[in-house]
Design a protein around this nucleic acid. Structure first.
Lengths: 257, 257
DNA sequence: CTTGGCGCTTGATAAATGTCAAGCAGAAAC
DNA sequence: GTTTCTGCTTGACATTTATCAAGCGCCAAG
């Protein structure tokens, strides 16, 4: 069943699709369809072959991985995000699992349609390259965060990043359960609790999913955020894709001025 | 000074360049030049703006990062490898530093030449997309390795990967100093020593840079290698690029058979 | 040949993090 | 309204990893 125009239009002007002319866009959307999933649905398991590019239009998705009896969370996606782009471009198996955290709407775009339109339209292909480059840079920041900071520093920087994304207010709402945040930051739930406690003397207070800040300067002195690791962009810029949010040219200079 | 044909020819049939026809290749190489650096030369620092794609033709390069007073190694490159591809495609600043470990020959390809040739030739652009996808997948494996395994498990898996790359012999040669390996694996040099000691009862012996294996089955039982984290490809396939080495479609099935 | 420097190993100790258990609060199910 | 379940916090203890120091061996410089 061909995709309804209204569903495809939801991504017409987001991320790398905005660089496609109408014929390229229609070629890319050939065979695409919208699917709705309840919460806690496994969309993909590690090692699965991948035939679709997934575009999260509503809800939340957790990308994860496991080994022996350990699991971890590699990313938590919010609308509008694409995922499994690298595996689709390379026609490879998935290296991550994907599970819905909330009830979600996902646009499934056939891999072959995307690859064909990239090979046919160099400008569109270049835009997808930029998106892949942005995804790569996001992962470089993530591994730097893990290798260079301890667990309290990772939490402190996470909170400052969320605060930037949620409008620089004195209170934010954690976008998911704390055990998911613990897995994302690479620690056990018990240690996330202890890390929040450590931050209480930097003015951080917690009430369920609500986190308050009363001494941002002290928190920043501990966190030492760096534009080379942390990416403080506003949340409503998420739909612009990783190519946009990860470009940041000259950002060291911007920070200094 | 234009690049000598003989220098450009060194990359004519490697990695994504092999997908370029002659005119696209010449456009990509427009303004390229070969440079030789002694060991321990800083090629790039984190935050530097990037104007060239670097291609390591000979020697070794360490990609690293620091924060506060901590440093880590993110990758160690062997010939023939490209690096800083994502920053060039996205026209962004470098998120990693690059330093030669040995005396090295590096081909510098202007970023604008590469981007122009990608935009002009969709097939070549697609090949660069595949390379970026491969680089991304390599980083996914790396972060999974760090988040899911302890330091002894990371060393054990590193050794098995090196053994696969060096021809499945009973002895390998570590390709760089142990303190660099320690930084790559995310531990201090003292802990690398202790991890090697822990592996001695799995048949691992060390004599300088030489590592011997006398009980590979025992080592594999501890290491539990997984094709979803580890990439056992032969070293002479390195010149084929990350798109090739990271594709691995259906590899779970291959491993089982 | 001698001296100095560097890489590495080992020991002792400190810090960070994980594991296990218990209890509380709130929400969901009955 | 009651019961059950889940997420989270806190305590106690174990394990992993880092830090600091000392010493050895080898290589480079003089």
């Amino acid at each position: 069943m061909p995709i309804r125009n209204s569903d495809a239009e939801r991504v017409r002007h987001i991320s790398f699709f905005k660089h496609a002319d109408d014929s390229t866009f229609n070629l890319a959307m050939n065979g695409a369809f919208l699917q709705r999933f309840p919460a806690n649905t496994a969309l993909l398991m590690e090692g699965d072959s991948v035939d679709f590019l997934y575009i999260l239009l509503d809800g939340a998705v957790e990308l994860g991985a496991g080994w022996k009896s350990k699991d971890t969370t590699l990313a938590i996606l919010r609308p509008i995000s694409t995922f499994i782009l690298a595996a689709v471009v390379l026609e490879s198996d998935a290296l991550m699992s994907a599970v819905t955290l909330d009830r979600s709407e996902i646009l499934m775009v056939p891999g072959e349609s995307l690859r064909s339109s990239m090979k046919q339209d160099a400008k569109f292909g270049f835009a997808v390259s930029e998106e892949l480059a942005g995804c790569y840079r996001g992962l470089v920041r993530s591994i730097k965060n893990h290798k260079l900071r301890d667990s309290t520093e990772r939490l402190a920087n996470y909170l400052l990043t969320q605060r930037a994304r949620q409008g620089e207010k004195d209170e934010i709402v954690l976008p998911h359960e704390k055990r998911v945040l613990a897995a994302l930051l690479g620690m056990t739930p018990e240690n996330l609790s202890r890390a929040f406690s450590k931050l209480s003397d930097k003015g951080v207070s917690v009430d369920g999913a609500h986190v308050g800040f009363s001494n941002v300067a002290a928190l920043e002195r501990l966190a030492r955020p760096s534009p080379l690791i942390d990416n403080h962009y506003a949340q409503d810029r998420n739909t612009l894709g990783k190519a946009y949010t990860e470009r940041q040219q000259g950002v060291l200079d911007q920070k200094k001025s």
